[in-house]
Design a protein around this nucleic acid. Structure first.
Length: 753
RNA sequence: GGGCAGUUAGUUCAGUGGUAGAACGGUCGCCUUACACGCGACAGGUCGUAGGUUCAAUCCCUACACUGCCCACCA
């Protein structure tokens, strides 16, 4: 009786098989290994300590939907996980999602805009309700899509970065750093996104080349060039290079210059006002650029801010958080947006003859990574994490090869970023509502001591950092929690251990009076992890920060190997983007070709390159290959009614095709271990199609002896095993139909070695 | 400005110090009892440019060009 149709049909197979896996419980590490132990014939490895393999997922955002980058990433990770599981490791792959602070908040704000509501109108509490609604509605979409991909994740351990336990871990981390003196609050010039109305870190700024005008403005006897004339109103000095012979004699002088009188209202014609401005010397000035003189606007430029700190210059803030000129800009410009103010001031300066010339100029504009608005550097009170020590820890671990990057070249990039010479303190506070609120509490309003405590007013502290809401002991007033939330990446940085129960389950926990019930601790059991893979785009944002966080909080690197996979581009080498219409939806491809074809196609292109130009011909190949295997099975099962998997004599025989098969098994294993997925996939393809099918099957057609039948069975069984990590659905489906006595799921079969 | 990667058949990519490979596509012939999502065959490349090392270079070295990415940001 033929239980096989002529062609393989992924649609009838995939959901059914995934359900079978879930019901088996074998994605849960303990059940997979205990099952294997119970059923396996005792091997030489029987007495050795159990091997573990843990891999760390890059949790997708709650705004996420599966894209090609995910498809590649999770396919490769699943390949590793499935191989390890078959090799008998106790294998954990823990799924989860990230709350994605700014990205998720922007998504919900967009939704609100459509309803004509602003988040401020709604209020923080109501807005957060909407956020949680969003999380419930869309948060798990991508996880469902991961199942379509066949990812063998332990769903009983699903985590979210805002779970109650996770929130505690984040608080613990913040308080720890604070107590160490590594977290501080400071008024500094930071990157401010006008639209998102929050500060952002250096890594969240994109510099995009744009055409602008370079204005040459007269400053007394000098002329200097700027692209932002409106910041002239915030100038507190002029700076030159200390060794610039042209200007040496003016250093330290108070220079009288003519400028526009900004105390006159706009309605009146522009008038000249004379002011004095100091000339300072600073290394940061490039004598070659423009006229070699820089106007210093400490409040609205990062470099100028640093010059001002070195030279002890005052700072004058003239632009507010909404990107408008404030009262310090004078009544003439107050309230104008920066772009309007620029136009206006240029007009005024021209009227007064203070503009020498205007050139075309191309320079880099800072834009928000999340919403593409122009970034306004602003002085702002923010929280920072000192990076010097943390970066040094990570650097040492990298140099000692406690963490390895694959391909190795990425290690250099990471080391460069972590170099104490380059690293800057991390701005970890955000003026958002969605996220982990800082465990920082302010005494508001001011303390009014209760009777008997009048003398203690000096002891009262304005601010406390703690997990619990403090109450003032002198006035009984409750403290108010900081409005700010933490940068999403602060919590993501704790992912590898916070998901495993840190800090509750770790040694770091303070002694308890009553011993808690003994429950197996995931942290003790599964930390540190072995492997993580991700896109190169978050190497600094995420991997770097996980490394130093892991070292700081657990004393161990969070993973041993980082595999940086290729970025998927269109066939023309363009970025895949939904908004540009160049994106490809993996779910459409699964619909058209089947998951296994997608997985195999992607894996066979996963070389060490940094880009992967994606075309559907790969999937055509994968689909044809899936069908080929299906039909090989049909042939083999027609030839013998029962397949004997325990063909010890066959595996050791001199038959050339068997030798080749064993060689391929070795090649595949080695290449997967080296993350040469393409090589592994292609050697399998070549062997199965061109050796097994084209040659051996053709030759076997004239044979009917037992050795031939056993050989066919051996080749098929081992091909299916080796192929399973790449094409799990197809191979499991075939396995379920094979006439093999006492079989279990292919998922937990022994890996050919 | 600094760093990294790539440049091989129509396309996407392998590859090796000594006659250049795969997949997809193309052309021709085959419904051969596992598979037409197949079988058999064919066509198609002075391996980015210019030097150098070598008996010999697509592969090693140097420079250049182009493409892409990352870091820094210069007013």
């Amino acid at each position: 009786m033929d239980t096989f149709n002529k062609t393989y049909n992924p649609k009838e197979t995939e959901d059914k098989i995934y359900k079978l896996w879930l019901e088996s419980g074998f994605f849960i590490p303990s059940s997979a290994t205990s099952f294997a132990k119970a059923t396996k014939v005792k091997k030489a490895t029987g007495n050795k300590p159990e091997k573990k393999f843990v891999t760390c997922i890059a949790p997708p955002n709650i705004t996420g939907e599966l894209h090609m980058g995910h498809a590649l990433e999770y396919t490769l990770q699943d390949i590793i996980v499935r191989v390890k599981r078959m090799q008998g490791y106790r294998t954990l792959w823990l799924p989860g999602i990230d709350h994605a602070g700014i990205a998720a908040q922007n998504a919900v704000e967009k939704q609100l805009t459509k309803e004509n509501i602003s988040r401020h109108k709604l209020g923080r509490e109501k807005f957060l309700e909407r956020m949680w609604q969003w999380r419930d509605q869309y948060g798990n979409v991508i996880l469902e899509q991961l199942k379509k991909l066949g990812a063998s994740l332990d769903w009983t351990r699903l985590r979210f970065t805002m779970d109650p336990d996770y929130q505690k871990a984040v608080q613990e981390a913040f308080i720890h750093y604070y107590k160490k003196g590594w977290i501080y609050q400071g008024e500094r010039v930071i990157n401010w996104c006008i639209r998102c109305a929050t500060s952002i870190s250096d890594l969240e700024v994109n510099y995009i080349p744009e055409k602008a005008k370079l204005y040459y403005i007269k400053y007394g006897r000098f002329t200097l060039a700027t692209v932002r004339p409106e910041t002239k109103l915030g100038d507190t000095a002029l700076a030159v290079h200390p060794n610039d012979e042209r200007y040496k004699k003016y250093i330290g002088e108070d220079l009288e210059i003519e400028t526009v009188d900004n105390d006159l209202p706009l309605e009146q014609a522009a008038k000249v006002k004379k002011i004095k401005i100091k000339v300072v010397a600073d290394e940061a000035v490039d004598p070659e650029f423009g006229t070699g003189i820089v106007k210093v606007t400490p409040a609205h430029d990062l470099t100028d801010f640093e010059i001002a700190q070195r030279q002890n210059l005052p700072s004058l803030k003239i632009i507010d958080e909404h990107g408008r000129m404030n009262e310090n800009a004078g009544i003439r410009y107050q309230g104008l947006k920066t772009a309007e103010a620029r136009e206006r001031i240029v007009k005024d300066l021209e009227t007064l003859g203070l503009i020498e010339k205007i050139d075309g100029y191309e320079h880099n504009i800072a834009r928000c990574d999340r919403c593409n608005s122009v970034i306004e550097p602003l002085p702002s009170k923010q929280w920072f994490l000192k990076m010097k020590e943390l970066a040094r820890f990570a650097l040492v671990a990298l140099r000692k090869k406690e963490v390895r990057l694959h391909p190795e070249r990425w290690s250099g990039a990471l080391e460069h970023w972590l170099d104490p010479k380059n690293i800057r303190d991390w701005n970890i506070s955000r003026q958002l509502w969605w996220g982990h609120r800082l465990p920082v509490w302010h005494h508001e309003p001011k303390c009014v001591p209760k009777p008997g405590h009048e003398k203690d007013i000096d002891k009262c502290i304005d601010m406390k950092v703690s997990a619990e809401k403090p109450i003032c002991e002198y006035c009984d007033a409750k403290f108010m929690q900081s409005e700010d939330v933490l940068d999403t990446w602060f919590s993501s940085a704790l992912w590898p251990f916070a998901t495993l129960g840190w800090p509750q389950d770790s040694e770091a926990q303070p002694p308890r009076e009553v011993e808690p019930p003994k429950i197996p601790s995931d942290f003790k059991e599964y930390y540190p992890t072995d492997f993580i893979t991700s896109d190169r785009g978050i190497l600094f944002l995420w991997q770097a920060r996980m490394i130093f966080s892991g070292l700081e909080f657990t004393g161990k690197v969070p993973f041993k190997d980082i595999y940086i996979h290729a970025t998927i581009l269109t066939k023309d080498g363009k970025r895949m983007s939904k908004s540009l219409g160049t994106g490809v939806n993996p779910l459409d491809l699964i619909e058209k070709y089947g998951t296994d074809a997608l997985r195999f196609g992607l894996a066979s292109q996963a070389t060490g390159l940094q880009d992967l130009r994606f075309g559907e011909d790969l999937l055509v190949m994968g689909k044809k290959f899936a069908n080929k295997i299906w039909n090989i099975t049909r042939y083999v099962t027609m030839k013998s009614e029962i397949l004997n998997p325990k063909s010890e004599t066959i595996s050791k025989s001199e038959i050339p095709i068997i030798q080749k098969m064993n060689g391929v098994a070795k090649t595949v294993t080695e290449n997967i271990e080296k993350y040469n997925f393409a090589e592994a996939a292609n050697s399998l393809y070549k062997f199965i199609w061109h050796e097994f099918a084209d040659k051996y099957i053709e030759e076997s057609k004239d044979q009917d002896d037992q050795e031939t039948k056993d050989t066919l069975a051996y080749l098929l069984i081992n091909s299916l095993k080796l192929l399973h990590p790449f094409m799990p659905f197809l191979t499991e489906e075939i396995w379920s139909k094979l006439p093999i006595p006492d079989k279990k799921l292919l998922l937990v079969e022994d890996w050919p070695s």
